[in-house]
Nucleic acid binder design. Structure first.
Lengths: 225, 225
DNA sequence: CCCGGGCGTTAAGGTTCCGTCAAGGCCCGG
DNA sequence: CCGGGCCTTGACGGAACCTTAACGCCCGGG
């Protein structure tokens, strides 16, 4: 289910979007100003953000920069008619699309679909196999080579998913922490040690001498298929 | 240089876009109908397409489908005001963005930049190969020609990365020390001797007679591919 | 011939980083 | 209200890494 975060200070718009999006099977959360909007992005990890530029507490482009600082979640900007320069500024700040109020709900929905479609990287290969287990990213499932399936907690899964998606590449601790726990946790390398140990215990044939989930001291971790 | 294909049947718009885009250092090609437009896409492989929906020979969504059938080049659609349903259809057919005529040139340029930015997520392809090993800067990985991979510490990586990025060029000791250890260490050439020795031991087939990591006495070091 | 600067090499200390374990808190379902 | 996953947090031994110093080599100049 696609998660949408709506950041707007007008209750009527918030309500209209919530009703329309929920009816289309979107998972909607809302925020009424820039500060709580940025917090909500870090906490909820929406798949797409609808952002009104006329917020009471922050400039719209600053909100965009705050989000773009650490993630590329698509942003659709909403704003009053006739603000040509604002429109350009928002797009250059990193917004993906721009809709002028008043807008037709059909158009917004279409742009939403377009943004989500672009963001989903590709119908790529969501299955990775090693000699000891198989990771199916689409089914969110890990099966050992003897047929038994592995139970992973949500956090363990997020971590494994990032490592597998970057198969072979080194992923820095900062990136892992940012993508799993949010930008505020970039220094809590403690978490990584705990969860990597758990993943190894569940996946590695010899957890004390990892073959797939490798540590690069001082840099990060690497999944080696 | 970014290549833009403009598909439109109105000579005035074609001319206006050609002038404005050329002035911004875009490489512009044009087509006046859907058929020649599709041919131009296949022939020129533009980085982005600007497509007018009101073409004489084909329906706009068909052109989009024709392009989307085999490539994901970003498409920005142009159309007359008030065609809400057409707009939705175009986006759902796979267009990336939609601009209503009459449009401001600034807005179109901003949307163009946004579309190009989204489409190029890979900034560079930093892989350098020699007869004895391959350096993959993105994956932070060095593989010897016999298949074994080399373990490098963070400092060793920083050093090697600078040298490889300046492949063939001489890099002064000051620059290396400044970029790896910080400006306060510009005279500690000791560090360089120690770490260059380690890199040679790990990379060179004959560490005592370096072939890739060369010393320029009194000046600095050079990576020779 | 001797001497000194620049470089390569090695090894010892000290520091940071990692794996591991376990206790405590939170949330949810029974 | 109680129990069980799950997530956070802290502590500790050991490994990896960085710094630093010492020594030998080569080469050009005095």
């Amino acid at each position: 289910m696609t998660r949408v975060l709506v950041v707007d200070d007008e209750p009527s718009i918030l309500r209209a979007l919530r009703i329309n999006l929920s009816a289309r099977e979107y998972d909607v959360s809302t925020a009424a100003d820039g500060t709580s909007g940025l917090a909500a992005v870090a906490r909820d990890r929406p798949d797409v953000i609808i952002l009104d530029l006329g917020l009471p507490d922050m400039d719209g482009t600053d909100v965009i920069h705050g989000v773009r600082g650490w993630t590329s979640i698509p942003i659709i900007v909403l704003s009053a008619w006739g603000q040509e320069s604002q429109k350009v500024a928002a797009l250059d700040a990193g917004a993906d699309d721009y809709v002028t109020k008043p807008f037709g709900m059909d158009e917004l929905l279409a742009r939403l679909r377009a943004a989500v479609r672009r963001a989903s990287p590709a119908p790529d290969e969501p299955v990775v196999t090693t000699a000891d287990f198989t990771v199916d990213l689409a089914a969110k499932e890990v099966i050992r080579s003897d047929g038994s399936d592995v139970r992973l907690t949500p956090t363990e899964w997020q971590l494994l998913e990032i490592l597998v998606r970057n198969s072979g590449r080194l992923v820095t601790q900062r990136q892992l922490l940012r993508e799993v726990w949010g930008p505020a946790y970039e220094t809590e390398s403690n978490y990584l040690r705990v969860y990597l140990a758990q993943l190894r215990r569940k996946l590695e044939p010899e957890p004390s001498q990892p073959r797939y989930l490798l540590t690069e001291s001082g840099m990060g971790y690497r999944f080696k298929p």
